[in-house]
Design a protein around this nucleic acid. Structure first.
Length: 757
DNA sequence: CCCCAGACG
DNA sequence: CCGTCGTCTGGGG
């Protein structure tokens, strides 16, 4: 710290507590507890740990950022501000013009979801402070526990110090998922296009529902109380709680409301036609169906609805009227931290400028526009005006997929390597479920000091199998280890991510079943058609497939040359039936890939790789991707690109890598294998072809395809397999996609942009 | 366009 | 004795 002080001349602001670690009382249920005492306990349990040290470091980084910002602020003249103010004013006019108060957006959020589920299913927990998670991390806590300062994202061992009687229940995701799908059924009744944000949270557009609702008879707005215990036979057995005291599972003060009627032994309630009534009805149905309570916020846009749902948090709702005045007043006193997207760091930066509420935000916009990036200050401006997205965007296809694991310190190279392989296998499995292939593989490492690093490599072709991914990941890992050299990598976490999925832009609606490819005249290949036509009109599927194969072979041939300098070529690991083993002492890769010919799965006629699925939709998607991959870029370009990158990489390798890297081994074994090329195995008939002539081999495969797989497929697939909707749309939010292939909203924006139009 | 760190939920 | 997964931003090459 002294060094830091000497260098900067600024005293390190570490006195007292590290604000990053302090209790986060942003959440509901945290009012009126003695924060000082809680913070003291948190501090005492953390002090001296590696984690704590890392937090101190990060806090100082934020402080430096603040100092830098303040310095910049000094440079700003009245002139600058004047000009900026004018710009802001113009912007405000624009935004005001587009303000939309006509929509009714609802944000629903289950109360203490995981904890509530566990309490429901285990009545003994009801009056105890409890949390869901583990000694190292809690997912959520019940309201009883929150009184002690126990909250989500707090490690269990600290929570125990705050509340020695705390009961920690392990997570039970299958159960939460089941409940989640129950509540989503209800959501769909109010907005079939609702957007789930997590298992327990969703945005709904109530506008249309309310229009219809106005003309609904009472009967459609009547909902019954859950059957009483003796006649209840629909509940799952063991998890059935004591249903006799059903209403208030969580909160005894839940208001049993006005219109409660008795009718042949079953109580019911008739809900009105207003928004409040509709939302209350939805919450009522959720509670009757799941015995769990939800809270909701009603507002003219998503950003406000989210804040509103927090307002009356357990088991309540809040409506913000759709008038500009109401919105502005609401926003005026709103702490910036409450806004989704403004977190710990942004809050601190803003605080340093004297901004804590959204009204301050508006007052200092000119300054903010000079200190923050454009996107950032636009964001702030919108928040200060109470603006957000008035429509609920479709979920886009996922952009990445990853898996990571934390463990006790691990330094042994072999151990790390086998863990890495495991992760790759897990990832490949998940990938397979969605029929995706990606070009960028990223390795994530966290050392025992909690320092995080990511290392990525983008290939010129998409990959999906464990072997392919591992071939890259292990290289990245090795490079990193070499980098750190004499010291070993002392890891506490490793992760593997894949991204840059082959573009499926715009081609979804045109996807055809494989049957469509059989007739060259009718072959429809979506957007790729255009470019293909330039080269060769009316190319048949088989011609395309052959072209693609040749292209792959050419690419492999050229990369083979590079391979001598240490570039692995995962593509061919199982393109040929004999995957090169990555590690001499470990034949897992080889075994895995050869075992793929055991009958389950189909061979892609384009890339020759095995697609481990019985699902024709998945298989089709794979083929589409393979084909579009070849035609999306002109073949020559494709090769150049690949060559360039690989070559560049080769230079790096020569410099940075030690000799005898595992990738070199991989390369040479692939290489050797290929140059011998004594025989090739047809992926269709699985017979070895005694020829190294690729043309002949191709012909054989085409023949095989013609007689075998395609016949089979043809008989199995009469109708189009793929729904017209985006195939990946379910991946993230599991949102059901309506059939209209509505045009794409670019730039996904799961986080901030959703809240703004 | 790629890579990486960091913020955020 | 402090998690996992996914998205976005922003700076640098």
């Amino acid at each position: 710290l002294n060094v830091w002080k000497a260098k900067t001349g600024i005293p390190p602001k570490t006195e007292g507590l590290v604000s990053r670690m302090a209790l986060n009382d942003n959440k509901a249920g945290m009012e009126g507890l003695d924060r000082d005492k809680i913070n003291k306990i948190i501090m005492e349990s953390s002090k001296g740990s590696k984690f704590y040290e890392n937090e101190v470091k990060r806090e100082q980084q934020v402080n430096q950022r603040i100092d830098k910002m303040m310095l910049q602020k000094e440079q700003i003249t009245e002139q600058h501000l004047k000009k900026a103010q004018a710009q802001v004013a113009r912007m405000v006019v624009e935004l005001e013009k587009r303000r939309d108060l006509t929509r009714v957006i609802v944000h629903v959020d289950m109360d203490a979801f995981y904890a509530a589920v566990e309490m429901r299913d285990c009545p003994e927990l009801k009056d105890k402070p409890m949390a869901v998670g583990s000694m190292s991390m809690l997912s959520t806590s019940n309201y009883h526990a929150r009184k002690y300062g126990v909250r989500a994202a707090m490690p269990g061992f600290i929570a125990k110090k705050l509340c020695p009687n705390l009961v920690i229940v392990p997570t039970n995701f299958d159960k939460y998922r089941a409940v989640s799908s129950e509540i989503r059924e209800i959501f769909a009744d109010y907005d079939p296009n609702f957007m789930p944000m997590s298992l327990d949270e969703a945005y709904l557009d109530f506008t249309e529902h309310l229009e219809k609702r106005q003309s609904w008879p009472d009967s459609l707005r009547t909902h019954h109380y859950r059957a009483s215990s003796d006649e209840n036979n629909e509940l799952p057995q063991e998890t059935t709680p004591d249903v006799t005291d059903l209403s208030p599972v969580l909160f005894d003060d839940s208001p049993s409301s006005f219109l409660c009627c008795e009718d042949a032994g079953s109580a019911f309630e008739i809900f009105g036609t207003s928004v409040e009534e509709a939302v209350r009805e939805m919450r009522f149905r959720i509670e009757q169906k799941t015995l769990l309570t939800a809270s909701a916020g009603i507002a003219p846009n998503m950003m406000l609805a989210k804040v509103c749902s927090d307002k009356n948090k357990p088991n309540g709702q809040y409506r913000l009227p759709s008038t500009r005045e109401a919105v502005m007043e609401f926003v005026c006193n709103l702490p910036v931290r409450k806004v989704s997207g403004i977190g710990k760091v942004s809050e601190k930066l803003l605080n340093a400028l004297g901004i804590s509420s959204c009204s301050h935000l508006g007052q200092k916009m000119a300054l903010l526009s000079l200190l923050f990036s454009e996107t950032a200050w636009h964001h702030f401006l919108q928040v200060s005006l109470g603006l957000g997205s008035a429509f609920i965007p479709r979920h886009e296809e996922r952009k990445s997929m990853s898996t990571e694991r934390t463990f006790k310190e691990m330094s042994a190279a072999e151990e790390q390597l086998s863990l890495c392989r495991e992760l790759c296998e897990d990832l490949a499995n998940d990938l397979k479920k969605e029929g995706l292939k990606g070009k960028t593989v990223t390795l994530k490492l966290k050392n025992v000091n909690f320092e995080v690093k990511t290392r990525a490599l983008t290939l010129s072709y998409p990959v999906a199998t464990a072997d392919e991914i591992f071939a890259v990941a292990k290289d990245l890992l090795k490079t990193e280890r070499d980098n750190e050299s004499p010291q070993p990598l002392r890891l506490r976490l490793m992760g593997v991510r894949i991204s840059a999925f082959v573009s499926s832009d715009e081609k979804q609606p045109l996807q055809k079943s494989i049957v469509g490819f059989l007739n060259p005249g009718k072959a429809e290949l979506g957007e790729s058609e255009e470019k293909t036509t330039l080269e060769e009109p009316q190319q048949s599927f088989f011609q395309k497939a052959r072209a693609k194969r040749l292209q792959l072979q050419a690419a492999a041939a050229s990369s083979r040359q590079e391979d001598s300098s240490g570039i692995s070529s995962p593509l061919f690991l199982d393109a040929r039936n004999c995957a090169a083993s990555d590690e001499p002492d470990n034949d897992g890769a080889c075994g895995a890939s050869t075992s793929t010919s055991d009958g389950i799965g189909l061979s892609c006629p384009v890339c020759f790789r095995r697609v481990e699925t019985a699902d024709l939709a998945v298989f089709n998607r794979h083929i589409d991707q393979c084909l579009s991959e070849s035609s999306a870029q002109k073949p020559s370009q494709h090769l150049e690109e690949g060559d360039g990158r690989e070559a560049k990489r080769a230079e790096l390798s020569a410099e940075e890598r030690s000799l005898g890297s595992t990738s070199a081994e991989t390369a040479s074994s692939v290489n050797g294998n290929h140059s011998k090329s004594s025989s090739l195995v047809c992926p269709i008939c699985l017979l070895t072809q005694d020829s190294d002539d690729l043309i002949l081999f191709n012909r054989h495969v085409d023949l095989c395809l013609n007689q075998g797989v395609l016949h089979k497929l043809q008989s199995e697939t009469r109708s189009p397999i793929n729904p017209p909707s985006a195939p990946n749309s379910k991946a993230l939010g599991e949102r059901d996609s309506p059939s209209s292939p509505s045009k794409k909203v670019k730039g996904s924006c799961i986080t901030i942009d959703h809240f703004f139009r």
